[in-house]
């Protein structure tokens, strides 16, 4: 039988926390940027302008049909050079974190966009008509009437997607960026305690995601109660 040896975890906690901060950073930035871009994509998708609608659909469908692992590999191949130029930072900077942030923001935007589109459609027709009748422009009606309601309805879904994003961010592993899981791997490899560290990482992810998703579920039920 396997003899567990958990002695690597306690001294490794500060390092693991550093990795967790990278994970959280990627999650939060990609959530904010992803929802912003996702909203734009969702509105464009419903635009009267055919070309814009098509572009938005192409963007969303492309990202949704490629495995995240391949997307990460693609972006780590292409992005570093572009980032250096845009932000004119020197070669010495480690651009891996920035690359990861951009990758996850763009990738998640495609998933958020679909949720937001459904949310908008769920409030759109009657409300839009009423707002327009009140003399609002299309943009005003969208901004002041439709979007606030849509976001309220779909907030739980957006959060659920964010929990998925939190889990998916572990895939920066393929670009050897030291997020929470990456650090667990580094410590496990260094001390020959991979089994313990992988179990520990799994437990931490489970507890965090379980609590979050339970909260989301409760919120969702409350929203349903109101409606």
């Amino acid at each position: 039988m396997y003899e567990f040896d958990w002695s690597s975890i306690r001294p490794g906690l500060p390092f693991l926390w550093k990795g967790m901060k990278v994970t959280l950073y990627i999650t939060l930035v990609a959530m904010a940027a992803g929802i912003a871009l996702g909203t734009v994509l969702a509105i464009l998708r419903m635009a009267k302008n055919r070309a814009l609608a098509w572009l938005s659909a192409a963007y969303v469908n492309t990202f949704r049909s490629i495995p995240l692992v391949m997307v990460i590999l693609w972006f780590f191949l292409l992005l570093p050079a572009v980032i250096e130029r845009i932000f004119s930072i020197s070669r010495q900077e480690d651009t891996r974190l920035t690359t990861a942030l951009v990758t996850f923001s763009l990738f998640q935007a495609a998933y958020y966009a679909e949720i937001i589109r459904a949310g908008i459609q769920s409030v759109k027709s009657g409300q839009m008509g009423a707002a327009l009748a009140l003399g609002m422009t299309n943009g005003q009606a969208m901004r002041l009437v439709v979007l606030p309601q849509a976001f309220r309805n779909m907030a739980p879904l957006l959060l659920t997607q964010t929990i998925i994003l939190f889990q998916d961010s572990s895939l920066v592993y393929v670009a050897s960026l030291a997020d929470f899981f990456g650090v667990a791997g580094i410590i496990g490899t260094r001390d020959g305690r991979q089994v313990e560290l992988y179990l520990f990482a799994g437990a931490v992810y489970f507890v965090a995601c379980f609590i979050l998703s339970s909260l989301v579920k409760r919120w969702q039920n409350r929203l349903k109660g109101h409606a």
Binding site: Y2, Q167, D168, S170, L171, Y173, F181, Q194, V195, Y198, L199, A201, G202, Y205, F206, C209, F210, S213
Partner: peptide
Amino acid sequence: EVFRNIPLLVQLFLWYFVAPE
């Protein structure tokens, strides 16, 4: 709950490295 709240990558490592132990 268990299988939805642990990242796929971590599950894979658990199946391959940990489960046989």
